[in-house]
Nucleic acid binder design. Structure first.
Lengths: 229, 229
DNA sequence: TAAAAATGTTGTTTTATAACAATGTTTTTA
DNA sequence: TAAAAACATTGTTATAAAACAACATTTTTA
């Protein structure tokens, strides 16, 4: 179930998103008509193969972007943070989602008609450049993920995932936004093996670990593990 | 060693590429100054991390696009066919190549200053749409490759690679443009195992195989193998 | 708040595939 | 065209990680 909160408006929103700023600059505020939708934990925000009708801005909360693989096993592509957009691939030729997004925590989203965003993209070169760059970065990340998931082994993959999450939260101390199994989806290994590797890292004094709380004690060591094997 | 053929000009070129057509439409023919460079088999056409200075159109021949992974093992992203472009990622925010391209056969390329192509992109919406779409498709392919290489096993991966090549050559009968080891790079398995799987497929009457010549006798069976495992 | 479901943990077994080795064949190079 | 290098093939061994199992703990749901 989703909650539609019609009270929230852009001017009251503390997240100054590029879409709003660009729309304002282009005098398209009237047409914006943003809809604020709240998703509960575990709820699907968008589904693979579904049509992209809106650009979705994650205003509050965390979500996971994943593709559903074989035998019900997912591969998590990324963890979404407040400020991230969903659905902008529509601008790059695909009318359908190529991935799923589901809420890891309650997620507040702001949704705008994708047609309007497309128009903005085509008529505002700064906005265009921003989206192009973001898309290019996504592509580069995909590329390195392809190598990592294929050629690295468990310890390296988990180390990489931990560093990725630390970088998202801009801190070496964080609360894991995912379960062990999901950390496995992000690292392309089983949940059981995630537990094992995490225990090893703890044993070796590389991380401190208690339930979901992680402190990376030796970031350089973890970095080395993530690079080599 | 590369051969620069200054004699070839766009008007004489039988490959009517989008860049030339768009430049003509925009009266930018004078500025185009295309350079025709020929690469020998095995030569590097572009290298990871190098600056992108030109848009490279593969006019004739085949090339492989790959990222260099760990322990000297590559992952092949795609096989390039005549008409394919290299370096357009520069438009999407990255000034450096994120991949390598090397010649599988002698490769004739036509190279145009990337700055000009960028200008064309920003001032021609049709051209823009084409490049965006191409980039989007590349992204989608990456995504499905991520799943395939991670979750499928040898037989499925090799089946997929064979179908991919058949689709490139638009025929179920083709001469492999790659070695067994390279087919391994494309499938993320070892060369030895490629040989084994190909032998199995031959034994099972799914393909006909002699040296580099492949005939897919039972495309549907191969398709099923590629999907399941 | 009791019951059910999901998550976390550790140990054991199985399995797919890499790694290694040995040899024949083709292609490239000097 | 002879020698060297790269490629293809088959068999064997080693290994990383999945699969399975059993149970403790936490979270969700009725």
């Amino acid at each position: 179930m989703r909650l539609i909160d019609k009270e929230k408006h852009c001017l009251a929103c503390n997240s100054t998103c590029d879409i709003f700023l660009t729309a304002k600059e282009m005098n398209l505020e009237q047409e914006l008509n943003p809809v604020h939708i709240v998703y509960k934990k575990h709820e699907i925000i968008c589904r693979e193969h579904a049509s992209i009708t809106h650009s979705i801005n994650l205003v509050e909360g965390n979500a996971k972007m994943f593709v559903s693989g074989l035998h019900g096993k997912n591969i998590m592509l990324s963890i979404l943070m407040p400020g991230n957009y969903i659905g902008l691939t529509a601008i790059f030729g695909s009318a359908k989602y190529a991935y799923n997004v589901s809420a890891l925590t309650p997620c507040h989203t702001c949704q705008v008609n994708i047609g309007l965003v497309k128009r903005m993209y085509h008529n505002n070169s700064l906005f265009q450049e921003k989206l192009n760059k973001a898309f290019g970065i996504t592509m580069a990340n995909m590329m390195s993920k392809l190598v990592s998931l294929n050629q690295k082994q468990m310890r390296a993959k988990v180390a990489e995932s931990l560093l990725y999450i630390a970088q998202l939260f801009e801190s070496n101390r964080f609360v894991l936004p995912v379960t062990r199994k999901e950390l496995g989806e992000l690292s392309a290994i089983t949940g059981e093996n995630v537990v094992r590797v995490l225990s090893e890292f703890k044993q070796e004094g590389i991380i401190q670990l208690e339930a979901k709380e992680v402190i990376i004690l030796q970031p350089e060591v973890l970095k080395n593990i993530s690079l080599a094997g």
